[in-house]
Simulated assay, not measured.
Amino acid sequence: MFYFRLALPIMSLIFIAIPAAQAQDQSPVTSIVESWIASPHGDRTSEAFVHWNEDGAVPQDCATCHSGPGLMDFLGADGSLAGKVDAPAPTGSPIDCVACHNKSAAELEQITFPSGVVMTEASPSAICMVCHQGRASSDSVNAAIAGADDDSINGELGFINVHYAASAATMFGGAVRGGYQYDGKTYAERFAHVPDFNTCTTCHDPHTTKVVAIDQCSTCHQGAETVRDIRITPADIDGDGDTKEGIRAEIESLHEKLGEAVMVYAKEVSGKAIVYDAHAYPYFFNDLNENGAADPDEAKFPNRYQSWTPRLLRAAYNYQFLAKEHGAYAHNPRYAIQLAYDSLEDLSSKAAVDMAGMTRP
């Protein structure tokens, strides 16, 4: 049997059982459902949807993006007030068909980002942006460090995590301040691509989330064998002398150098060695043996890094922003480069950070 959960015009739900043989005759629907089940949005076994199983419910602060019913609650598609979640959501409920295919989602055009900036998106991408925007911004960091000396350890500071895959914040760039934006600098705003590939759902299959085939990109980006090989500038961004590598490689190199600079600054200025682990909260820890690696006994919450200065926190925030935004090279490469470059430049004012040959677009 195949079971399909459908949204009816009156917004009630019904489960329809279709015999397997009959389902074969409905290949378009079957294909879509199978694509969704295999996607991150439909993987009910993933950490994104099982994290709260022991608690018995997904808390209101997390329910919008970690539960189908929670997303409908936020949209007001369940009859509630839109813009907030009214109650914890059930566990084991991924982002299903009806969570995105409903009247409220179709009419959504105004997206409020963590900075408080409201952007208009009159396309099916609006529903994607509800969740893929992060949970922090320049404003969050500035509020935490207000009035503090840039290079003095502040015991009240803790790491500020943007959360995961803040793709919409990257795409809108400087307009929504998703990354940490330094005073006196200008930042690229929305990345304007060609009209046919300028929204989430024109570059990603909306059900699998996979990127469109490269042959649709190679008409303009000739010579690129993969999306990651595409290059948008002749400038040597990372200063390594290679002006042929894809822009993704340039960003990755700059990001790696930023990670190294964070460690140099922490040791030279804060006086406490720091190390990063992408899979352990809160990501930055004391490097007890100073070997530059997050050892199992170090990547634990009690050993979290607590020797933050405002300058170090700003750079670490941007490091994490780029670490969790794997598609920044496509969503807004100039913005990604600017965040990394400016973080390096800021750290270099107080620590031995080599930026020879680097270029800021």
Results as ranks from 00 to 15, higher is better:
residue 1 M to S: 08
residue 1 M to Y: 00
residue 10 I to A: 11
residue 16 I to R: 07
residue 17 A to F: 09
residue 20 A to G: 11
residue 22 Q to I: 14
residue 37 I to L: 13
residue 42 G to D: 09
residue 44 R to I: 15
residue 45 T to M: 07
residue 48 A to Y: 15
residue 49 F to L: 08
residue 52 W to Y: 12
residue 54 E to A: 15
residue 54 E to N: 06
residue 56 G to V: 04
residue 60 Q to I: 13
residue 66 H to G: 01
residue 71 L to Y: 00
residue 78 D to L: 11
residue 78 D to M: 07
residue 97 C to Q: 11
residue 101 H to R: 12
residue 102 N to D: 02
residue 111 I to H: 00
residue 112 T to K: 11
residue 113 F to H: 05
residue 119 M to G: 02
residue 120 T to A: 10
residue 131 C to H: 01
residue 133 Q to I: 02
residue 136 A to V: 06
residue 141 V to G: 01
residue 148 A to R: 15
residue 158 G to N: 07
residue 163 H to V: 10
residue 164 Y to A: 10
residue 165 A to T: 09
residue 172 F to W: 02
residue 175 A to S: 10
residue 178 G to E: 02
residue 191 F to N: 05
residue 194 V to T: 09
residue 205 D to W: 06
residue 209 T to F: 15
residue 219 T to N: 12
residue 229 D to T: 08
residue 230 I to E: 03
residue 232 I to T: 14
residue 233 T to G: 05
residue 235 A to R: 04
residue 240 D to E: 06
residue 243 T to M: 02
residue 244 K to L: 14
residue 245 E to H: 10
residue 249 A to I: 04
residue 249 A to Q: 14
residue 250 E to S: 10
residue 253 S to E: 03
residue 258 L to N: 00
residue 259 G to W: 00
residue 265 Y to G: 05
residue 280 A to G: 11
residue 283 Y to I: 06
residue 286 N to H: 14
residue 289 N to T: 07
residue 292 G to P: 09
residue 295 D to R: 07
residue 301 F to A: 15
residue 319 Y to G: 03
residue 322 L to D: 03
residue 335 Y to V: 03
residue 336 A to C: 02
residue 338 Q to D: 00
residue 340 A to H: 00
residue 345 E to H: 07
residue 348 S to Y: 07
residue 352 A to K: 15
residue 353 V to P: 06
residue 357 G to D: 04
residue 358 M to W: 00
residue 359 T to V: 12
